[in-house]
């Protein structure tokens, strides 16, 4: 008993304290979402009256097409996640495994462009998409397709970099064996590398999914029409009015928006740890 205490008590105390720290703000969000007054005021830590008014508002108010926003976010984020990983994995493979002129310079450029404060390039992106709009209204400013293209461009650097880390960690013996068997790089890629890296690709896809899901600065500039907005933009609308703040619907909406990500996260936990260890930049 005393041995158990000596060995494990501090572990539990640390665990519990940090769990309380982690949960506290989330608990407040939950309380707020059930509070009808729409304020973030904490009257008591145990809610007295529970109201579903905020949730009802999200699903019934025709001026807040919340489910459409949710769908938009999921579609845009999934698309970006899948495509950016597919395109990124191929580049990462080339950077890691193939020999070509200018490889080292390429890797360094890739790293450096990620370091540029992207927020400032916003004006330029806007100008480009505005020009695209003049000849292809389906792809330019104000369209989801245009926004997806920008996200893809933005995700590329990070993803190639991340995935390159993974590819580096896969032993080269396998593809050397394949090479001896007469496989071309394209075949090695599809038959050896992709199956090996599948879990890792899933993790990187998940990380880009979350990143895209959270993005609001570009999205609010690009997705003007109510029906085309994403959840992050829609949620900000509740508390970013000229003078008003509606915390209730914001909290309710945030909780619903978090559910899919939290579920994926918890179920892929094991993969995520290995994925992150190999080199992520969030944190």
């Amino acid at each position: 008993m005393t041995k158990w205490l000596r060995e494990n008590l501090w572990r539990h105390i640390t665990g519990i304290i940090m769990c309380v720290f982690a949960l506290f703000p989330l608990y407040l969000v939950v309380i707020t979402s059930f509070n009808e007054s729409g304020s973030l005021k904490i009257t008591s830590f145990i809610p007295t009256d529970i109201s579903f008014a905020n949730y009802k508002l999200l699903f019934t108010d025709e001026r807040i097409p919340y489910m459409t926003w949710m769908k938009n976010s999921l579609v845009i984020a999934s698309f970006v996640a899948v495509v950016s990983v597919v395109v990124g994995a191929a580049s990462a493979f080339a950077f890691s495994r193939l020999k070509f002129k200018g490889k080292k310079a390429g890797i360094q450029i890739l790293l450096l462009i990620q370091m540029f404060p992207a927020i400032l390039a916003l004006s330029a992106v806007y100008v480009i998409m505005e020009r695209v709009y003049t000849f292809a209204p389906g792809l330019g400013l104000g369209t989801q397709a245009g926004l997806i293209l920008i996200y893809l461009g933005g995700a590329m650097g990070v993803n190639i970099w991340l995935l390159k880390g993974f590819v580096d960690s896969i032993p080269t013996e396998l593809d050397e064996a394949a090479k001896i068997d007469g496989a071309t790089p394209v075949q090695t890629y599809w038959l050896i590398f992709i199956p090996l890296a599948a879990p890792v690709l899933a993790v990187v896809a998940l990380l880009s999914f979350i990143g895209t899901f959270n993005e609001f600065i570009l999205a609010r500039l690009f997705l003007v029409d109510m029906e085309s907005r994403t959840v992050a933009v829609g949620l900000q609308q509740f508390i970013g009015g000229q003078f008003s703040e509606n915390w209730g619907p914001f909290a309710a909406g945030s909780i619903i928006a978090s559910i899919p990500i939290v579920i994926i996260f918890l179920s892929l936990q094991r993969y995520i740890i290995s994925g992150l260890t190999a080199g992520s930049v969030k944190g």
Partner: peptide, 15 residues
């Protein structure tokens, strides 16, 4: 413990 990492940061920062 992974919850703070998983919930959308725009929400948690504002809260």
């Amino acid at each position: 413990l992974v919850l703070p990492y998983a919930v959308p940061s725009i929400m948690s920062i504002l809260i």
